[in-house]
Computed example of a mutant assay.
Amino acid sequence: MSEQKRVAIIGSGNWGSAIAAVIGGNLQKEQTKFHREVRMWVFEEMINGRKLTEIINQDHENVKYLPGQKLPENVIAEPDILKAAEDADLLVFVLPHQFIARSCKQLVGKVKSGAIALSLVKGLNNPEPGKIGLISDIIKEQLGVEVGVLMGANIANEVAAGSFCETTIAFKNVEHGRLFRDAIQTENFRVTVVNDVANAELSGALKNIVAFAAGLIDGLYGEKAGNTKAAVIRLGIMEMIDFAEKFFPGGSRETFLESCGVADVITSSFGGRNRKCAEAFAKQPDKTVKQLQDEMLNGQLLQGPGTAEEVNHFLKAKGRENEFPLFTTVHRICVKEIPAKELLDHLRNHPVHK
């Protein structure tokens, strides 16, 4: 029998803990391909006088980021990122995208030879004006490993609770994607493997801007604006596809029909944190996005406003903001350059209507 492969999870927030619950549960049962233990890197913090790692390892629950959901006993919280990643064959990155470069820097030269990585990170990299890149490329370039992505219509609490859902794993080497699928797929968490990494990752990042726009509609007009919300979501999806084809050519439009695409936009626009905070932002114009994030998310970070900012910096440097009015308008609203009530004014003459 070949050597069992070790899995390590870099990150332990809401989504990180949820995927740890899924992988840990799988590897408790799987006795051949994978090592049973799953190490999870946890940024140490004190909760009611106890270390978070101590709580997770003793009580088997991430009481801050995934309260009420038990983690399998084979998920081991580790505060040292090097120890968490030590000897891991499969690295699962699930952090806010703002922290990826800093975390990878600590792992340079310390990753096992032949390891592969999977990014669950939804965001983009804007290294300098006029340039934009994928988070998976940061991991690949810094660590020298092949990197794929997992993106899908996956609200973390529902995944952890075992609700039926789908997700998409994208790897250029689909056999590597299937290896991660074997560690992740369950009866209720179904995985499709594709080879279109860029479009899958762009979908996961850009959908947060669309979800924020959908939340603004909820806050401005309430439940009676179903037609309006649907129109905004469709325009957002069209901008996602247009952005991918103009700046990351070579992918397939069919990828946007996978769970990472349309399905993720739908679930995020009706149930995600970006929608929730955007609704509150529209209703409370005296508050900033940062204030609402701190009040409502218990330490989690919003991705929509940050991604909108990165996209806007890129488009502005290119002189192409007008080609993406929804992306541009969401950014301007988030930074209070214009009020939320002006959203539709900037979409009525959208390029797709001409």
Rank of each mutant, 00 (worst) to 15 (best):
L326C: 08
Y65C: 02
A278W: 01
A263H: 06
E128S: 12
K336M: 01
V145Q: 14
N312Q: 14
L71H: 02
K290D: 09
F43N: 10
E73T: 14
A156G: 07
R6Q: 14
F327A: 03
A282C: 04
N57I: 05
L326N: 04
G261D: 04
F281C: 07
E37Y: 05
N26L: 13
F324Q: 10
S269Q: 02
G215P: 06
P72R: 03
V194M: 04
R181C: 05
V63N: 03
V121Y: 02
L27E: 09
W15A: 00
V7Y: 07
I116S: 02
P96E: 00
A161Y: 01
G261W: 01
P72I: 03
E158A: 03
E239T: 06
L235M: 10
E61I: 09
A200S: 13
A225M: 09
P67A: 08
S2K: 10
A84W: 01
N298V: 04
G261Q: 04
R320W: 05
V111F: 05
L297Y: 00
I233R: 04
A280I: 05
F248T: 07
I138C: 07
I19D: 00
N173W: 06
N14A: 03
F99G: 09
A183M: 14
V232N: 06
I132R: 01
E321V: 07
P325D: 03
G251P: 14
E3Q: 13
L326Q: 08
E187H: 07
K207W: 01
P351G: 13
G49Q: 03
S12Q: 02
A101D: 02
A160L: 08
G16W: 00
A263Y: 03
I155M: 12
G49W: 11
P305N: 15
K105Y: 13
F180H: 11
N62R: 05
T329M: 08
A77V: 03
L326T: 06
V352K: 10
E141C: 05
A183T: 15
H60Q: 15
